[in-house]
Each structure stands twice: as structure tokens, then as C-alpha cells.
Design a protein around this nucleic acid. Structure first.
Length: 902
RNA sequence: GCGGAGGUUGCCGAGCUAGGUCAAAGGCGGCAGACUCAAGAUCUGCUUCCGUAGGGGUUCGCCGGUUCGAAUCCGGCCCUCCGCACCA
């Protein structure tokens, strides 16, 4: 653990001095944002990472002269907060325990229950956690302009969202249609991943089935069998039903269809104008034969108790040629039917029978067969309608033909059996008047892709990734019938879905601090058209407020950099770009997106159900802001996975202590130390180089690389000084000002503390850093120093091999004439005086280093060798070779004399 | 399957976009030494193999190719991870 400086007091100084309250001026602006967090609970270290990186970048850019705006707000729209309130109100123990735990992190004892009670109102949940998040973020030292904060459900902002949707409507980008969603019949509403038991770990997908209709001979009804594999129709040998399931006769599209009772409920929620006529006993159909659609044949139906009530229609058509299950059922019930095989894979007939022989496990056999046939399968030629087609094409063809001929209808089913968290079954329902944003429009896609190509992505492969996503995106359901948020202006009983209301909201940051609650009725569509688009709609005369908002918007807007996680790529970020392209002029469009890698905890993925989410607040309280910031900066580059683990945190404390120890030593020692002379020059030259690298890497957004350079590398150089017996404090003092500036984006509290202690009046947040150019004499000096260090390494190597403890070290460097000859030989010219050295030179050709004044290097730094080995050093120059070892440029000969040390 | 990322020395993890200075940064772990009564902390050195002179051998998923030269470029193969939606 480290002895931390008082971070809170610096945070108070920053606040009272308003150092992060950004206003337009004549500097170049830089707007940096991170997606607003969803306020359903406390944040964990994963959230902390993106904001910390953004803050480090913001502080660095400020220091290099940009006018930086770093705002944030809170996302409170959507359904999860509502369902939390609902669960608390209805006494759900798990939720109550969880939220009691959350509240106890911030509030004590008797307050907890009262606050918890309040959570029965969803807005209280949202507001409670947004307030706490503000405190956490202030405690992390983020340079956020808090004046601009707002919540996604506040009325003033809602006005802008409504404006946005009216614009999209006018531009014909909204449409209505039907749409399948996961649904709870008992609750009467759609359910999200959050509402489903294990929904976050085991996703439930919606699968599209076709219910194929089999006419009962001589009767007026059909059996409805659900299938994902319509192409296997011609392989049908029989049907299955389960006598334990209750079946009903229902009217679908003017046909009487038999399905399970449970299925009829699903159909009622998917297809309009259907009704259940009566239950039907299996005896009424078990002895019939049924006509297979499109095939001139009739098949029987058999009992099969493996069929599950919850799965599709409760009636299955049997294709033993291509289904391992059907084949094994036939065997089990001892039904003698020959499978019909109608699919070839790579020229050979594919069959369930063969697959069963190949794989021991039936489920594995089924999976492999399914894959093989789906991706490589071809229908046999002789088949009607689909002969010779690929399985994929045949399936689609069959779907269409059956529907056209009224022999099938669409049916949606969950990919697994799913229940809500309180145990109610989840089905798929079709919403028939769903609102969509039509991201499928080709023109819109094209413009959006064109803009993506102008944007800067980090890492840059996400740029092509984004183009793919945009191409793939289709209509997006943009409104729901429950949850918090803005009402859809086109139809006020719908609420705008929570990702669709968070696309252009960063624009609101540019003027949110100018708007007060009293301005509500001024925020009309005309107002926003003026502020965001510069248009005077319906003869709108801008008010003073509108004009100042417009000015602020024009100065700041265009998000220069947005830092977020890869999870947002295919939804939030894509919508963000789409909507900006639809509504804003080119110059206000997003410019850069930087994608952060995952955050894991002690090697494992963070998930709420595992309970390994490390609360951000805990981290700040136990370790302090600067430790967390150092951790984020040093442990992993933004695009790679960051592992939060306790062992590593300890190391970071070590780094922090090294820095604060050296700084306090400087501050306490006064300036009476002896100047280490030339070594100091080497150190300073190296520091200039590190600083240059640091700035270059920061500009390339390589925060880790930059931090390593300015922390580890500089500390290493200081360590080197001390191992030479020189004074670190004097050295640190010389670089102190620049070093603190460079460190301040990473550890702002520590930096400000020592900046002040070192006698500066100002705040580092208002300082500008000037990066000096590295000059040639710096580089020469360093290479001379490194040369001597190389000799020390060599001596050490020789000592290790020979076990000699040297009392004298003889070093012979290559003189200028000899060097010229050696260089000529190394270039292939062997017409030289000393033929005898040719062989030696060729052997070491790769190791020759020219352009270095070795004699001078030894004169300056030779004493180092004596200090390290406590032995005499004797240097000579050899300029004409006679015999023995040959010194070459950059590679002197070394001879040790002394006792053997066993 | 499609799309994306990646496989580096005991472990984690740089480097590979501009091939040589890479036996390959840094950290962890391990070993030795200094300090200490001792432990811890800290500091120093070592940590692929061989070697009585700074050298040599074999390494960067596997197999080939390009090149004077490849962890780095090209082709193939094997394996791992992530996304595939209406959910924040």
C-alpha cells in the first residue's frame, strides 16, 4: 500500500478554480466523449477504464494547447431500470438483496431501507446511481465539465430526441411493420436479455420456423408440423405426435390446423385473426393418413414420447434419411420404414445412418450432419422444384413455394427453452405495428459508408469492420411499449427505444449548460433546427438563447474522439454514425472512434452472475485515484484486454512509491547536491528522448507506450545513475518540471502535489508542455555512454566464462588507419596492407560499428568501468596490426588479468 | 458457417504496419548476492542449451515459399477468443 497524497483536496481545487469548465476561445477545440453509462447500478472497473483513458488523453491534449471539452451524461432510458423497480416493488428477494448491497456501498444503516423503498419508482433508481457515479468520477480525478451533465430522460433533452425523430420521419427514414420479439404471455409484454433467466450468459435467439401443413385424408383439417428444414420435404416418411400433449384445432388463415395447445398460444401472439376452435383428441387423427405437400404421397403418423410440448407445434415430420433423431426414433419404436435420402455432400449421398456410424454421440452426429448438409449439401437432381439446388437455396425456395401455395406459414420459436427471472415462460410474439428506423436504405448506407472511410478508427481494422456492419444492418425496431425514455412523437403511446435515443446526444453537450429547466417551452423543433442545422424553419427568429447555443454548437461540435468498447460496434456506434450522417453537415460529423479491449478480473470474464465485478468505488477507496489511473495506463494498451488483478495492483503501488519517493526527496533535500557532471548530461539527453517518444506515442493514442516511456524508462535511467554511485536527486531536480508535466495526465493528483511543493504557484492543468527536439550531440553522447556500458557487459561475460576476477582490464581500441582498412575489407575490398586480418574481419563483419569516437568515449566514461569492477583500466589504441587479437571499430579487444575465482 | 482478432522463450505480455542492431522489452515467478539477529521490504546480477575470453547451437503454433538474411513478408494447415442484433 502506498502513502497517498490527499487527492480529495486537489479535486476540490480543480472544482473551485473551474479548470475543466471549457468555453470557446481562439485555441483549436477538441471534443472527446465516452458513451454515457446506464445507471442501473454502481459502475465496475470496466467502465472506469474507458473514462480513465479518455481523461488521460483529454489532459494530455489540453497540455499540448488544445481547448478540450470532456463532458458526460447519464443514460436512464430503457427497460431494465423499470424491471428492477418492478421486482423491488413485488418483493423479489434476489433483486432486493442485490440493491441493498449496492446502496450499502454508498449509504449507511437506517437510510438503506428508505432508499430501497424509494426504488419502487424507476426514476429514483436512475437518479440515485447517476449521483453516485458523479462522485466516483470526481474521486477518480476526471477532467469533466460537470456543468454540462444531463440525463437521457429529462424533458429538455427529450425535446431534442423528438426533434430527431420528426426529422427522421420527414426524411422517410422511419417505417412501420411487424417484428418478432421475445415475450412473456403472463406479463403481457416483451422481455429483454435482462429479464430472462441466465439471459446474459446463455443468449436466447429467435429462430424462424415454417409450419408445414399436412392435409388429413378425407377430413377437413391439417396437421401443422414445425420445421427449420423445409428442403427435406421429399424425404418425409411419416409424422410424429406425442399422446401426452394436449392438441387443439385452430383456425389459421381460414384453415383448420392441429397444433399443441401450448403452440396455439404462441400462434395467437404471432398471427392476427386466429382462433382456437376446440381441443382435439389424438384419436381423431392418429389413424389417418396425411398428404405430404408438393409430393404425391401420403404418410402415417406415429406416437413419439420424445417430443416436447414446449418445442414448436408438438407435431413433427420425420425425415430419417437426414435426421439422426428421426432415425433413432424409428429404431426405438421398431417401425420398419426405409429412410429416403435426397441430399448429396461432395458427390456422395449423405445420410443420417452414415453419420450415426461415424459419431458415437447422437447429438454430435446430428450437429455434424446438419452442418455438412447445410454448407456443402446439394439436393439430388431428380427432385421436383428443388432438384440440383444447394441446401441453402432449396430451403429458401421451399419456404416460398409452400407459403405461396398456402401449405405453410411462418412461425417463430426461441432457440432454447427460456423463462423469465420469476419463472414465467418466454415465447416469441410478433408485434404488428412496430416502428423501425430503416437502416436498410441503400442511399443512407452509401453516405454513411462514405463518411466512415473519412473517419479515424483505432485500431484501424475496425474501419472495415464498421463498413461490414453498416452493410449488414437492416431495419431497427426503435420504439417499445414500456420503459423509461422519450415518447415517440409520431405515436405517443410508444417510447423511443434506448439505443435509438442515444445517437446524436453528444451534440446536446455543446449547449446543455446554457439551458435551464425554465427554458422548456423554448425548445421547439424550430429551435433545434436552428441550433443544430442553422435553418430558420417557419420564419423562426432565434432568441438570444438559441443564438448562444448555436455559437457554442458550431465551435465545439464534431466529436473528435469517442472512446468506447467493441461491444458497441454493431449497434450503438453504427446508429451514431448513421444518425449523424442523416442530420448534420459534414463538418459536424464524428471524426474518430477508439475501441477499448475487454476488461477481465483476475483472469476471468466479468459478469454480474459470477459476482466478480469489482466496484469502481471500492477501488478508488482502497487504492486511490492515481493508482487506478496508473494501472489502466501501464498494464495494457487500450486495444488489448486489461486484467484487473490484485497482484498487479501491488506492483503499481511500487511504481507509485518510486515516483513519490524520488519527488519528496527532491523537495526535502534542497539544492546542495553535487552535480554528477557528464553523466548528468547523458541522463538529460536520455530524458529528452523519452519525452519525445512519450509525446509521439500519446499523439498516436498509445497511452501505455507513452506511460512506459515516461515512467519505467525514466526510473530505469535514474536507477542507472544510482548504480554508478551518482546522485538521483540532483538529476531528478533538473528534469522535475518537465517530468511532472508529462506525468500529470496520468497521475494528476501526484503531479499537482509535487508541482506545488516544488515551488510552482500554478496548476498543471493550466500548463503547456514544450517538447524539445533531440539534437545530434545528445545522440552522440548517449552512444558513447552506451558503448562503455557495452564494454562493461563484455567484461562481465568474460568473467563469467573464465572465472577471472580482474585486477586489471586492458582495453585496446582500433585506431583510425586500421579502422579504414577494416571498413574497406568489410565492404569487399581486400587490397590492403594487412592481408592477415581479412579472415578475422569477415567473421565479425556484422558487428562493426563505425562513426563512434571510442577513445573519447573511454576518456569520458572509462572511470565507470573502474568503479563497477574495482580494478584498474588501461586503454591503448592500436593502429597497425602485428599479431594477436584484433580490435575493430566499435569492438575493442579486452584482456583481463587477475586471480581465478572458483 | 460468416465476419473480426490472435497463437512469442515457466507464466503474463511487447515486438511484428517500414525484414537484419531479436535469444527477442517489461512484469511475475525462480536462483544467487548485498542489507538484516531473522523475516519482509529494497537494491544488484542471473534465469534456452553448450563454452576456461566477449563465441557458438537451437528457438517465436505447424508445413512450405520469397530473400544474402524472417518472430517479422507470401501461401496452406491446425488451434484459441470475440460478434452474428433489436439488448443496455
Amino acid at each position: 500500500m502506498s502513502k497517498m497524497i490527499d487527492e480529495k483536496s486537489w479535486q476540490r481545487v480543480w472544482e473551485s478554480e473551474e479548470v475543466f469548465a471549457s468555453e470557446p476561445d481562439d485555441r483549436e477545440k477538441f471534443l472527446i466523449t465516452v458513451p454515457w453509462p446506464y445507471t442501473s447500478g454502481p459502475l465496475h472497473v470496466g467502465h472506469g477504464r474507458t473514462y480513465t483513458i479518455a481523461d488521460i488523453m483529454a489532459r494530455f491534449l489540453r497540455m499540448t494547447g488544445y481547448n478540450v471539452l470532456f463532458p458526460m451524461g447519464f443514460h436512464e432510458s430503457g427497460t431494465p431500470i423499470g424491471s428492477i423497480s418492478h421486482k423491488i416493488a413485488s418483493g423479489d428477494k434476489r433483486t432486493i438483496d442485490l440493491y441493498r448491497k449496492y446502496i450499502s456501498q454508498y449509504d449507511s444503516g437506517e437510510n438503506v431501507d428508505e432508499i430501497l423503498k424509494g426504488f419502487e419508482d424507476p426514476t429514483k433508481v436512475a437518479d440515485y446511481f447517476s449521483d453516485k457515479i458523479i462522485n466516483d468520477f470526481i474521486a477518480l480525478g476526471f477532467s469533466i465539465d460537470w456543468r454540462r451533465k444531463f440525463r437521457s430522460i429529462e424533458p429538455n433533452f427529450s425535446n431534442m430526441v423528438k426533434w430527431q425523430f420528426r426529422q427522421l420521419g420527414k426524411q422517410d427514414r422511419l417505417k412501420k411493420g411487424s417484428h418478432p420479439v421475445l415475450f412473456s404471455i403472463d406479463d403481457g409484454n416483451a422481455v429483454g436479455e435482462d429479464d430472462i433467466e441466465d439471459g446474459d450468459t446463455d443468449k436466447v435467439a429467435i429462430e424462424k420456423f415454417l409450419v408445414v401443413l399436412f392435409k388429413a385424408s378425407g377430413k377437413d383439417f391439417y396437421l401443422g408440423a414445425g420445421s427449420l428444414r423445409a428442403e427435406t420435404i421429399f424425404g418425409i416418411t411419416n409424422l410424429w405426435y406425442n399422446p401426452d400433449i394436449t392438441y387443439v384445432l385452430m383456425n389459421v388463415d381460414n384453415k383448420k390446423v392441429v397444433v399443441s395447445q401450448w403452440c396455439s398460444k404462441k400462434i395467437e401472439n404471432q398471427i392476427q385473426n386466429v382462433e382456437v376452435i376446440r381441443t382435439i383428441s389424438p384419436e381423431e387423427f392418429a389413424n389417418e393418413t396425411f398428404s405430404v405437400p408438393l409430393a404425391q404421397k401420403h404418410v402415417k403418423i406415429f406416437q413419439n414420447r420424445h417430443l416436447k410440448e414446449g418445442q414448436a407445434t408438438g407435431i413433427v415430420y420425420s425425415v430419417p434419411g437426414h435426421s439422426v433423431n428421426d432415425l433413432s426414433y424409428l429404431n426405438e419404436y421398431e417401425i420398419l420404414i426405409e429412410p429416403i435420402e435426397i441430399i448429396t455432400v461432395k458427390g456422395k449421398i449423405s445420410s443420417a445412418r452414415a453419420a450415426m456410424k461415424k459419431f458415437n454421440e447422437p447429438s454430435e452426429a446430428n450437429l455434424q450432419l446438419y452442418r455438412e448438409e447445410y454448407y456443402d449439401g446439394i439436393m439430388v437432381e431428380k427432385l421436383d422444384i428443388i432438384g440440383g439446388l444447394s441446401v441453402k437455396d432449396a430451403r429458401e425456395r421451399m419456404f416460398n413455394v409452400l407459403k405461396e401455395k398456402d401449405l405453410g406459414f411462418d412461425f417463430y420459436e426461441c432457440s432454447r427453452e427460456a423463462r423469465t427471472r420469476d419463472g414465467k415462460p418466454v415465447i416469441v410474439a410478433v408485434i404488428h405495428d412496430q416502428w423501425f428506423i430503416d437502416y436498410a436504405q441503400p442511399q443512407w448506407k452509401e453516405e454513411t459508408i462514405a463518411h466512415v472511410k473519412n473517419m479515424e478508427f483505432k485500431p484501424d481494422f475496425y474501419s472495415t469492420n464498421m463498413v461490414d456492419i453498416i452493410n449488414w444492418l437492416e431495419e431497427r425496431a426503435c420504439a417499445r411499449q414500456r420503459g423509461l425514455g422519450t415518447r415517440l412523437p409520431q405515436q405517443e403511446d410508444w417510447v423511443i427505444e434506448s439505443l435509438s435515443d442515444s445517437t446524436i446526444y453528444p451534440a446536446y453537450y455543446t449547449f446543455s449548460h446554457l439551458i435551464t429547466e425554465n427554458n422548456g417551452n423554448e425548445l421547439t423543433d424550430e429551435f433545434f433546427s436552428y441550433v443544430l442545422q442553422g435553418k430558420n424553419v417557419n420564419g423562426y427568429k432565434p432568441s438570444p438563447l438559441a443564438i448562444s447555443c448555436r455559437n457554442s454548437f458550431q465551435y465545439w461540435y464534431g466529436v473528435d474522439r469517442r472512446i468506447t468498447s467493441a461491444a458497441h460496434m454493431s449497434n450503438h456506434l453504427a446508429f451514431y454514425i448513421f444518425n449523424h450522417v442523416a442530420l448534420f453537415e459534414e463538418k459536424f460529423l464524428p471524426k474518430g472512434i477508439s475501441i477499448a479491449g475487454m476488461v477481465i478480473s483476475n483472469g476471468a470474464k466479468i459478469s454480474k452472475s459470477k459476482g466478480n465485478a469489482v466496484s469502481l468505488m471500492d477501488v478508488v477507496n482502497t487504492h486511490g485515484a492515481d493508482i487506478f489511473r496508473l494501472y489502466v495506463a501501464l498494464v495494457a494498451e487500450l486495444d488489448s484486454t486489461l486484467d484487473w488483478n490484485e497482484k498487479e495492483v501491488e506492483n503499481i503501488h511500487g511504481v507509485y512509491n518510486s515516483l513519490s519517493n524520488i519527488f519528496s526527496a527532491v523537495v526535502e533535500s534542497g539544492i546542495n547536491k553535487k552535480d554528477p557532471g557528464l553523466y548528468m548530461d547523458v541522463f538529460l539527453a536520455k530524458f529528452r528522448i523519452h519525452l519525445g517518444h512519450y509525446a509521439a506515442m500519446m499523439e498516436k493514442q498509445q497511452v501505455r507506450g507513452a506511460s512506459v516511456e515516461i515512467i519505467y524508462e525514466v526510473l530505469k535511467d535514474l536507477g542507472e545513475l544510482s548504480s554508478l554511485g551518482l546522485d538521483q536527486i540532483k538529476a531528478t531536480e533538473k528534469i522535475m518540471q518537465q517530468w511532472l508535466k508529462a506525468l500529470s495526465p496520468i497521475v494528476p493528483h501526484l503531479a499537482d502535489h509535487y508541482w506545488r511543493a516544488f515551488g510552482n504557484e500554478s496548476l498543471l492543468e493550466r500548463e503547456i508542455i514544450h517538447i524539445e527536439k533531440v539534437n545530434e550531440s545528445d545522440e552522440n553522447l548517449i552512444s558513447q555512454f552506451e558503448y562503455v556500458k557495452g564494454i562493461i557487459r563484455d567484461v562481465r561475460d568474460i568473467m563469467n566464462v573464465t572465472k577471472i576476477k580482474p585486477s586489471q582490464i586492458d582495453i585496446t581500441v582500433c585506431g583510425p588507419q586500421l579502422a579504414t582498412e577494416i571498413e574497406r575489407i568489410s565492404k569487399g575490398d581486400v587490397d590492403v596492407r594487412n592481408k592477415s586480418i581479412i579472415g578475422l574481419v569477415k567473421k565479425y563483419r556484422g558487428k562493426i560499428q563505425t562513426g563512434l569516437d571510442e577513445n573519447r568515449a573511454l576518456t569520458i566514461f572509462g572511470k565507470m568501468i573502474e568503479t563497477v569492477f574495482t580494478s584498474k583500466v588501461h586503454c591503448t589504441i592500436m593502429d597497425s596490426y602485428t599479431s594477436g587479437k584484433l580490435p575493430m571499430p566499435g569492438r575493442p579487444t579486452i584482456t583481463l588479468t587477475g586471480d581465478k575465482n572458483e
